[in-house]
Amino acid sequence: MITRRHFIALMAAPVLTGLYTWGIEPTWAEYVRLRLPIRSLPTVLAGRTLVQLSDIHVGDRVSSGYLAGVFAAVARMNPDIVAYTGDFISYAGPDTLDQLRRLADRLPRGRLGTVAVMGNHDYGENWIQGEVADAVGQILTGVGCVVLRNEAVDVHGLKIGGLDDLWSGRSRWGPWMSGLNSPALMLCHNPDACDLPGWGDYQGWILAGHTHGGQCRPPFLPPPILPVKNTRYTAGTFDLAGGRRLYINRGLGHLTRVRFNVRPEVTIFELARA
């Protein structure tokens, strides 16, 4: 027999869960600390920190105050390298770019270098607005971030390559990757790019985002919705063919304000010699 107390508990459970998934977890960032072993890493970089931030989604759906708080916390860590893996904005018109401009000075930067790649949302509506991505790139460049669009940069002996966004059709593998021998690190937004040909002899780490970890994941089960073809690409570390390894960050922001069992993430890597 269901008592009044049982009835109240049954009614309250979904309400409390809804309040948690909307009001708490979407802005309850988790700071994940991991070791990132890289072959032939220069001695000067061993023990240094690389912070990965992804899927910030500046716009009307994500609180600028929340983002500014996370940015300040990361800046206090004095990271050596900061790597952004795309989706800086959720584009809804020129006002979105103004919001990014207002937050740009607060974006954490690395003492040795700050690098970034573009995500699909950085290309505006239907991922086809190249002028929007160009504007995002200009804003980032203006605050000292090196935006990698199918190109690589040297950061104190570590080659960091950046693949442009997959869904926008801007990803280009090619001769620019020939210098990515160890020690090297690759950035790409969408982990599905890891399954496409063109990686050649690259055998290092790839840092990605895009999935948000699914945003909602039932306990002990995979997330029911993922924006990737390869549905094993949820979040965390994956071994790939050809000696490559992939890490997928769960992202800071959201498209719909809901997260359950998939907290937003800041990844703090300690660089190490493999």
Rank of each mutant, 00 (worst) to 15 (best):
V146Q: 13
V147N: 00
H212K: 03
G169R: 12
L140N: 00
C145F: 09
L196P: 01
L196D: 04
D192T: 11
W167D: 11
N181R: 15
D165R: 07
Y202N: 07
G200N: 14
E151K: 15
V146G: 01
W167F: 15
S182I: 01
W205G: 06
G137R: 09
G213L: 06
G213I: 11
I225L: 15
P191H: 09
D154W: 05
R170D: 02
Y202S: 05
L158N: 06
P219H: 06
G198W: 14
T141N: 13
V146D: 03
L148K: 05
S182W: 02
D195H: 15
L158Q: 09
A184C: 04
G209P: 05
V155Y: 09
P191L: 08
P197G: 06
P197F: 11
V153L: 07
M186P: 11
D192C: 08
W199T: 05
C194G: 03
P227E: 02
L187T: 01
R172N: 03
F220M: 12
K159Q: 13
G174N: 09
G161A: 13
L207W: 13
A184M: 05
P183M: 03
I160N: 08
P175C: 03
D165W: 10
G198N: 09
V153K: 10
L226I: 07
R149G: 04
G214R: 10
A208I: 00
T231D: 13
I139R: 06
S182M: 06
P197K: 13
I139F: 12
G161M: 14
N230W: 12
S168Y: 04
E151W: 02
A184S: 15
V136I: 05
N230G: 09
G162R: 12
N181G: 14
R232D: 06
A152T: 10
V143I: 14
L226H: 11
G161P: 12
H212E: 02
D201Y: 15
F220E: 04
L180W: 10
V155G: 07
A208Q: 00
G142M: 03
M177I: 08
N181D: 06
G162C: 08
T141Y: 02
L221S: 08
G137E: 04
